[in-house]
């Protein structure tokens, strides 16, 4: 290797550790992780409400509410996330209703991101939670009923704890997916870590290095989540551990 090439390489390595990675991590903590965590928490709340509405056996006027939630899940599962982001950020300002919304709905990029990611995650996770609730045997409902528990208490104390345990792996999938999907936020002007790596690549003409670096950081974040999933699964199966110890 020529002296020049070696010098060039060490310069790049130096920049990677003192400049590029710090910038990517800073954007990662400021936007990628905050977007993902806030959206996931809001998404879980939306998902739980949606799942409970959809499994409810209430009739009458409640059927309309059920239909609205069913429509919401259908809408967000049937359209691309990128398109949803564009509609919320670029489209809603043009939703002008005279008298009611004369100026449309103008959202800050971060707010638009949170709203879209939460609703998108909520739609998918609601199906996970609904299936998990329905996977708890009917007999658990009966056993709770026979000691006088009402439906709400049975859900809270007996059914949901068992259902949430079942849904840890699929919900972890959703969370990991969400972390990676936040890269789409670059398209609505949020300077998250993918956007940062694009900007650096435009300056230093090193797209391979920059995009590989950001890929590595995504992988790192997701690996932490996978580890967290394993820990959660273990913690939630306390009641099977003792049987292993006995066996």
């Amino acid at each position: 290797m020529s002296c020049f090439a070696r010098k060039e390489l060490s310069k790049i390595l130096h920049s990677i550790f003192t400049d590029y990675l710090p910038q990517i991590f800073a954007a990662g903590f400021k936007y990628t992780i905050t977007l993902a965590i806030i959206s996931f928490i809001l998404g879980l709340i939306i998902a739980l409400v949606t799942a409970l509405v959809r499994i409810s056996d209430k009739g009458g006027g409640f059927l309309i509410i059920k239909a609205i939630f069913r429509f919401y899940v259908w809408l967000f599962r049937s359209t691309p996330l990128l398109v949803q982001l564009f509609i919320v950020y670029f489209g809603l300002p043009y939703l002008k209703i005279p008298g009611l919304l004369p100026n449309g709905i103008k959202l800050a990029p971060f707010t638009a991101g949170i709203i879209t990611f939460s609703l998108n995650t909520g739609a998918y996770a609601s199906e996970t939670i609904r299936a998990a609730i329905q996977s708890v045997p009917r007999e658990q409902w009966e056993a709770a009923a026979s000691i006088g528990m009402n439906r709400g208490k049975t859900l809270r104390r007996i059914i949901l704890p068992q259902a949430l345990k079942v849904s840890i792996p699929p919900l972890s999938n959703s969370f990991i997916g969400l972390v990676k999907d936040t890269s789409l936020a670059a398209s609505i002007t949020i300077v998250e870590m993918f956007e940062v790596s694009q900007q650096i690549a435009a300056e230093n003409y090193q797209p391979l290095i920059m995009y590989s670096l950001v890929a590595l950081v995504y992988a790192l974040f997701c690996s932490v989540l996978s580890w967290l999933q394993g820990w959660l699964e273990k913690a939630s199966s306390r009641h099977s551990k003792e049987s292993e110890a006995e066996a």
């Binding site: 009966e142 056993a143 009923a145 026979s146 704890p161 068992q162 345990k165 009641h239």
Partner: peptide
């Protein structure tokens, strides 16, 4: 439900 208690064939204890 308070005045009657049910014992099921498959026990139906709360596993958690």
């Amino acid at each position: 439900r308070k005045k009657t208690g049910m014992v099921f064939q498959s026990y139906n204890l709360f596993p958690h």
